[in-house]
């Protein structure tokens, strides 16, 4: 497989969130072994559709000036930056479905968090866009990337119940992930 620029899964610093805290958070979002199973299935369903998924998500971001703002400076989007992020975004879809949520996964969520936050934004791609993605839009994005995935989950002939289960597992996984991404934005000891 071709190496993805800036994709450093397994080679990043430790997350400040412990596996024990992750476990409690998983329980709070009702994430179960059945969800794990259905996420894996979602991974199979989505693996040859990531381009279409990203077309849709990028279309949504592109259609909202206040969102595309984060990929540019002075109102002008940085196409190279958008393209570099897109490749990792495709990999993120696969990782969300397929990776075990272990220490490596937890660590990489923190890395992604830092790349949205001023700590590391733009650095991976050497871009000169605005310095931070604001918290509120990052969390809000949970909904569009969940709602729009349903159509793709139903494209491979699974029955409604199975699609619903994949969808519910996806929603939980995205919520869990985005919560971890908020860590750098939050005052000390308040996460």
């Amino acid at each position: 497989m071709e190496k993805i620029k800036g994709y450093t899964y397994g080679q990043v610093g430790a997350s400040p969130v412990s596996l024990a805290d992750l476990d409690l958070l998983k329980k709070t979002v009702l994430f179960s072994s059945d969800d794990e199973k259905h996420l894996k299935l979602a991974g199979e369903v989505l693996k040859d559709q990531t381009n279409e998924v990203l077309d849709l998500w990028y279309g949504f971001v592109g259609g909202n000036e206040h969102l595309v703002h984060y990929f540019g400076k002075g109102g002008k989007p940085d196409m190279e930056y958008l393209a570099a992020v897109r490749i990792r975004f495709g990999q993120w879809i696969m990782d969300l479905c397929n990776k075990p949520y272990d220490q490596d996964w937890l660590n990489y969520q923190h890395e992604i968090a830092l790349r949205h936050h001023s700590t590391k934004k733009n650095k991976t791609d050497n871009a000169s866009a605005v310095p931070i993605i604001h918290y509120r839009y990052m969390v809000a994005f949970i909904f569009p990337i969940t709602a729009t995935i349903k159509g793709f989950l139903s494209k491979k002939g699974h029955d409604t119940e199975t699609v619903e289960k994949m969808y519910a597992a996806w929603f939980k996984a995205v919520t869990l992930t985005v919560i971890l991404w908020t860590y750098p934005y939050i005052n000390k000891n308040e996460f």
């Binding site: 805290d21 958070l25 709070t28 979002v29 009702l30 969390v139 949970i142 929603f171 939980k172 919520t175 869990l176 985005v178 919560i179 908020t182 939050i186 308040e190 996460f191």
Partner: peptide, 10 residues
Amino acid sequence: YRYIPALTIP
């Protein structure tokens, strides 16, 4: 904080 958005699901 982390438990606030998490509660959206239950």
